[in-house]
Write a protein that binds this DNA or RNA. Structure first.
Lengths: 117, 117
DNA sequence: AACGTACTACGATGCCTATCGTACGAGCCG
DNA sequence: CGGCTCGTACGATAGGCATCGTAGTACGTT
């Protein structure tokens, strides 16, 4: 085989230099998307879309993943019928050192706070 | 005089516990508002609305300041005819330690990056 | 080939929002 | 008082967006 096991067509991702802070913040300002990113960060790496059990339809789920990808927050790759999602930690940490961790920490704190309320 | 020099009516602010991360991120995901917050952070404290020279009308400026206030990012107080604005650093740092600084650092980095482009 | 699964595309809907303009209110100053 | 400045309120407009449902495509499995 000449091409790796990346299988079929790949999806458009912004290059590292094209990632804008406003876009990242907007992407994370939606509860559903923040939740997705939190799960991705917690579970390490590479989760399929279907792994997430969100209280919205699949159409909407697809939409949220696309927003995250287009903002440069996640990387998406087809593997068979599954679409694997991973945080773009390297790019984000390079562009905005400490930001992702601060955001995840803030989200975690708020989750605890709201749970205990 | 019974009441302090706070002059007239005060504006509704969310209490610290009511501040939501998503709301803060949404507020900061607008370029104009991010710019306002950056100026507020840079210039220390308490700037009047008219101090800002934004490329939008006054109506729109008012709107952005209100969004920031309602998200819990800034505190607004009337002083005479002027309306003074200050970052709610204490509350934000308490709720989300390190987040504001990380955001400001990220915004600063991006500003440099885009300027040098 | 036939089927099932994973995800997408498209259109609709209702809400939110960034922007403007104009008209108004509130405080200061001559 | 009369005017000036600062900011607000309100209505309009146009675009964005979160959500859904249905129909369809891509891939693996049998």
């Amino acid at each position: 085989m000449t091409t790796p096991a990346v299988s079929s067509r790949d999806l458009p991702h912004p290059m590292r230099e094209e990632i804008r802070l406003e876009g990242v913040l907007h992407a994370l300002s939606d509860p559903m998307r923040l939740r997705i990113v939190r799960e991705l960060a917690a579970d390490g790496e590479e989760l399929s879309c279907s792994h997430f059990d969100l209280p919205v339809t699949k159409s909407t789920t697809t939409h949220h993943f696309r927003v995250l990808r287009e903002a440069g927050v996640i990387r998406q790759v087809y593997r068979g019928t599954a679409k694997m999602n991973g945080l773009r930690r390297d790019d984000l940490d390079d562009l905005f050192p400490g930001l992702l961790d601060a955001l995840l920490a803030a989200a975690g704190r708020q989750a605890v706070r709201l749970r205990d309320a």
